[in-house]
Design a protein around this nucleic acid. Structure first.
Lengths: 144, 144
DNA sequence: GTTATAAATGAGACTTATTCTCATTTATTG
DNA sequence: CAATAAATGAGAATAAGTCTCATTTATAAC
């Protein structure tokens, strides 16, 4: 059973062609992608309304993360439980978004600090997101 | 000279009524506010197109931060250089966004980790943002 | 394999947030 | 105070995302 079908059945979501196509597009380039790019990639294969519905389905079963890039466009990224915890690095020159794993030592420090914040604000903190903004200096042509 | 006028002249931005009104609205509730709420607050005082233009002016002079809340609405917050560095805590029950200062010790650790990432990815990191997601347990009526 | 049923889809209308246009008003400088 | 450039208001235009509803498809029962 292929990845995309397995993902769907594992999550008790019915296996349909659009869902397979969207999942495969996401598995295909396994890094953050603009909803707009996804729409183009799946043009003539999945209707716009369906794409948005499938994305919302994937969010519901907690395997899709959504955030915004520096231009405030919606960006999605598949996040399977086999994937490791990571954060994002945004280049303001070329717009690239790069997955970054922080050192364990740092994540531990962050967890401790989060516990302190939970007590201080009487909050239950379920998730966190760290975004780093800057310029890549040699990764792409745009970034001289 | 009032705050808002001083802010504008300090940044070489001409002092106009709409700019004063927007700045005062932002200074007034000095915590993140939805663009939509701001629009309502300034109804009949500042045209919609002007509000967006003024917000973009304030972003250009680097005293306005923009991000999105859990409902993907645009949220803005005035960020003067007299303000201390802070992050945000989002409540998924009531939608509140709270400013949070992390411990110095933690921010130092983060700076070090950022230096490591800069080297590893050949990046110049200029800014970072940490978002904490959870539920407040007693801050508001919605959150039982 | 057929059939019944509920769920998912496609197409496009609709909504909402944001940007754009352009005629008018206002701030600034000399 | 006059001249000029910049800013504004009003509403049209655009774009992202949602909704509707008739049709298609997946699933479960037989």
């Amino acid at each position: 059973m292929q990845d995309s079908k397995k993902i769907l059945s594992d999550n008790n979501v019915s296996i349909t062609n659009p869902r397979i196509l969207v999942l495969e597009a996401l598995l295909d380039n396994k890094s953050p992608i603009t909803v707009d790019e996804l729409l183009t990639k799946l043009e003539n294969q999945v209707a716009k309304s369906t794409l948005y519905r499938v994305l919302s389905d994937l969010k519901k079963i907690n395997i899709l993360q959504e955030f915004t890039n520096l231009e405030n466009q919606s960006v999605v990224e598949l996040l399977l439980d086999t994937d490791s915890h990571h954060h994002h690095l945004f280049c303001s020159d070329c717009g690239e978004i790069i997955d970054v794993e922080m050192a364990n030592e740092f994540e531990e420090k962050l967890s401790k600090e989060i516990k302190r914040i939970e007590k201080k604000f009487n909050f239950i903190i379920e998730d966190h997101r760290l975004e780093l903004f800057g310029k890549c200096t040699d990764l792409c042509e745009n970034c001289s």
